[in-house]
């Protein structure tokens, strides 16, 4: 296959990917309640409305809390699994890792439904932020493992042994040598888990308690046409935020590679 037509195709494909997102800022700053063309003028009052909306502020607060907790716990679990993955084999290891990675290929609604049954009907718990966190940790852990696997597999296994040979205990060898080398992976994993959790709707809609998360709140807004420009403004902010987080995650990943002295070959997954 030749390059030039493929290049044109790839660029058109990128345009297709970006088409919806390009509209966001247009309508976020458009001085009209109806989301349609033609545009009617520049305004920033959708952003001021956004800030003034107390319910939304609370939803954002909930989501940030959930995302932060998810990032921490998913990365901790991912750290355990990825480190174990880089170590010696034992019977059943492949199967266990495959099982932990399963949420990656499970329809999210199955995760949502099964947890709802257990939490509400079996355990009789009230839904709250922690029920959402528990589910988000489950679906984010495979992503953390994938990212951290990369970080651990780039490590020369004799590096930790060298530290122990030079007088460090097993734990301090991990702390002094392995941890700094995989730290970029840890940060990158936390940022990715944070981003996934912040945006997750399908599960959160089932498991959210009296205080909705941000996507659940947005879902509610989508039914009221008058609120739509505010959603656009919020969307614009979210896009900017996730792009920033992703760039930071990517920079950390690259720094990790550079630290380990490895040539860059790919992206996140």
């Amino acid at each position: 296959m030749r390059g030039a037509p493929l290049r044109v195709y790839a660029i058109l494909y990128l345009l297709f990917l970006y088409a919806p997102i390009a509209l966001l800022p247009l309508f976020a700053f458009n001085d009209a309640t109806i989301i349609a063309f033609p545009l009617s003028g520049f305004t920033t009052h959708w952003f001021t409305d956004l800030v003034a909306n107390a319910a939304l502020r609370q939803a954002v607060g909930n989501s940030l809390f959930i995302a932060a907790m998810t990032a921490i716990f998913a990365t901790l679990l991912g750290l355990c699994a990825a480190r174990a993955g880089a170590m010696a084999r034992f019977p059943g290891k492949g199967g266990i890792i495959g099982f932990v990675m399963l949420p990656l290929v499970l329809p999210e609604i199955i995760v949502a439904v099964s947890l709802l049954i257990v939490l509400r009907q079996v355990l009789g718990l009230n839904l709250n932020n922690w029920t959402v966190i528990s589910a988000h940790v489950l679906i984010c852990t495979p992503f953390s493992i994938a990212i951290l696997n990369g970080a651990f597999q780039n490590l020369d296994p004799s590096i930790e042994e060298a530290a122990m040979d030079l007088g460090e205990s097993r734990f301090s060898a991990f702390r002094l040598v392995t941890l700094p080398l995989v730290m970029p992976g840890i940060i990158s994993s936390m940022l990715i888990a944070f981003t996934i959790s912040l945006d997750e709707f399908i599960i959160a809609f089932f498991l959210t308690g009296a205080n909705p998360t941000m996507p659940v709140y947005i879902w509610g807004l989508l039914r009221f046409p008058a609120q739509l420009p505010v959603v656009m403004a919020l969307g614009t902010i979210l896009v900017a935020l996730s792009v920033t987080l992703l760039i930071i995650a990517e920079l950390f990943r690259r720094r990790g590679l550079a630290r380990a002295g490895i040539k860059d070959t790919g992206g996140f997954l």
Binding site: A84, R89, L102, S114, V137
Partner: peptide, 23 residues
């Protein structure tokens, strides 16, 4: 390695396998 793998495994067991069994 098995000890390290236990927390993620138990978590997935408690929040994935058992709930699906409940379904």
């Amino acid at each position: 390695a098995a000890t390290l793998l236990a927390p993620p495994f138990l978590y997935a067991l408690a929040l994935l396998a058992l709930p699906i069994l409940a379904v």
